[in-house]
Design a protein around this nucleic acid. Structure first.
Length: 295
DNA sequence: AGCTCTTCCTGAAAGC
DNA sequence: TGCTTTCAGGAAGAGC
């Protein structure tokens, strides 16, 4: 599933292939994941791709100003890969895999293709203001966030740390795999409440997070089920997962059995020995004695 | 504020 | 063996 390292890998690949190319034609299959497929199909032909960047898990294709004089046409194509989305550049004559729903025919005989089995992805055209709005609603990129900013965003939050790591309004780019891997590395239980983490624990978590993300980018992402880069190649970081998908296997640090529980509605993998569970109020509280307050 | 549940979707894996 | 059920999850919205 594409998280920050996978999206970064795709963006770097697209950057070697797309800038300077123009979109000649657009062919669409199923379009229920596209905000306005008609406008997308009509306004992209003739547009030149100027650059590609990553906004969290979003892929942002910047389009050069419209040569046809339609000055008001949106100049940003935003793509979110969801769970199973793939953006691949291929020669136009090569057969496309099943569930390929968008074909951007390029002026060099190749095609940028969007394939998405489950169609959890999103695709839309955006004007400048919409991109600014998107950025404003989202948190700070997990790779860039400073220690101070990370502490500030977790301070006083009574949510579980796992929930906050996944919350794109807090931190950008982290999904289930890298949340679990970072928490293992920082030796923090996923159900710990953010407000109860010490400064040292928060700093340790940020360090673990950025290290895990950096290593994953170096290995071109994790391919669990569907992920491939813009050349169609899988990543390599899945071989280095320490807890994700390792339920029942020994912890790489202490040999205790890796467990899987649901935290914040997400399956969470952790080592019960390295990542001690928070004290629940239940277990800690003494039976109530004396008179109960009337209300 | 933050939790749980639901929805979207398909294919793999588990269960019978 | 072959069918049915369950599960996975990013994000948003509802309801509590």
């Amino acid at each position: 599933m594409p998280e920050l390292p996978e999206v970064e890998t795709v963006v770097r690949g697209l950057r070697t292939a797309l800038p300077g190319r123009s979109i000649v034609a657009v062919r669409l299959g199923k379009t229920d994941f596209i905000d306005d497929p008609v406008v997308l199909g009509e306004s992209l032909p003739g547009r030149r791709i100027a650059g590609i960047e990553r906004i969290g898990k979003y892929i942002h294709l910047q389009l050069a100003p419209d040569g046809a004089g339609r000055a008001d046409s949106p100049s940003h194509l935003i793509v979110h890969l969801g769970m199973t989305g793939r953006l691949v550049v291929r020669a136009a004559h090569e057969p496309a895999p099943p569930h390929t729903h968008v074909f951007f025919q390029l002026d060099d005989g190749r095609e940028l293709r969007y394939t998405d089995i489950r169609r959890f992805g999103r695709m839309f055209l955006a004007a400048d203001a919409m991109v600014a709005d998107l950025r404003g609603r989202l948190g700070v990129d997990a790779l860039d966030i400073s220690a101070e900013e990370f502490r500030r965003r977790l301070a006083g939050r009574r949510a579980r740390i796992k929930a906050l790591l996944l919350d794109q309004h807090v931190l950008l780019g982290v999904g289930n795999i890298y949340a679990d891997e970072s928490l293992w590395r920082a030796r923090l239980h996923p159900a710990r409440l953010a407000a109860k983490l010490s400064k040292q624990e928060i700093d340790r978590l940020r360090h673990a997070l950025q290290r895990v993300l950096g290593e994953a980018i170096r290995l071109r992402g994790s391919s669990i089920s569907d992920f491939v880069d813009s050349d169609g190649q899988p990543g390599g970081y899945q071989r280095w997962h320490r807890v994700y998908g390792r339920k029942g296997k020994p912890c790489c640090r202490c040999r205790a059995m890796v467990q899987r529980i649901i935290v914040a509605g997400r399956s969470s993998h952790f080592c019960p020995r390295c990542q001690p569970a928070p004290r629940t109020r239940h277990a800690a509280s003494k039976p109530r004695r004396g008179k109960l307050k009337r209300r």
